[in-house]
Amino acid sequence: MKGGEVMQGVEQMQYVQFGVGEESYGIRIAEVHEIIRMQEITEIPNCQFYVMGVINLRGKIIPVISLRALFSLDEDVYSKATRIVVVHHQEESIGIIVDRVYKVTTFHDIQPPPERVGGINGAYFTGIGLTESELVGILKIDEVLLRD
């Protein structure tokens, strides 16, 4: 995605804001398919460390990944607030486990991402969104999901 596009749509573009660990992150609402409560996860042996397994989403089997694992945070602790954000990625649905989902929000300004964002590779982000009170790392879904 070009930076210009982000800037242009600042006023109207909406983001789902959620938390992982201490930090706050956002995903463009257009990329989010749905948000569901934590489900029973069936583990898949011998696959990438951040793929927690698969879930049954109304008869569809979809993989779920852990942002905590990807961001090298402590192991997941699932609580009542834990949610799975289901996104579309290359014609597949993929679930992203997050600690909590806050709200749908807009940013009055979006800054280009620095090289590292709180110890995490800056390439994962399209920018840093600014609200009145906080900084939100806007995730570049393609980059987050495309690992090899």
Binding site: I44, P45, N46, C47, V51, V54, I61, I62, P63, H89, Q90, E92, I94, L145
Partner: peptide, 8 residues
Amino acid sequence: LGSYVGKV
């Protein structure tokens, strides 16, 4: 398992 998980 989908192409995201790939061959296991």
